[in-house]
């Protein structure tokens, strides 16, 4: 999976968590927390969805990497490069 597919995966997950949100205008470099007012329960859900769907383990110390779409994709690229998108 490359960066574009990883971004799609994250968007899928966000759409699942917040089905009422219109994600089309989401900015890649602005914190997700600010744009969607996600709280820490939601961030944990992103982590758990990645584990559930792709068995990707994100250690607690790395949670801050999930701040923006760009930082999330950058962080996940090496971890997910050998995985197929489902």
């Amino acid at each position: 999976m490359g960066p574009a597919e990883i971004k799609e995966t994250i968007l899928d997950i966000l759409e699942g968590i917040a089905p009422d949100e219109d994600l089309s205008g989401l900015k890649d470099d602005v914190p997700l927390r600010e744009q969607l007012e996600l709280d820490s329960m939601d961030f944990l859900d992103i982590v758990m969805e990645l584990r559930k769907r792709y068995r990707v383990q994100i250690p607690e110390d790395d949670y801050l990497e999930l701040a923006t779409m760009n930082s999330t994709v950058n962080y996940l690229t090496p971890l997910m490069k050998d995985l197929e998108k489902v």
């Binding site: 699942g16 968590i17 009422d20 329960m41 939601d42 859900d45």
Partner: peptide
């Protein structure tokens, strides 16, 4: 609808409801 804060919005997200 559209409110993102408060327990109702948060529990809808946690349960994946619209």
């Amino acid at each position: 609808k559209g409110a993102r804060k408060g327990p109702l919005a948060r529990l809808l997200r946690q349960l994946r409801f619209r």
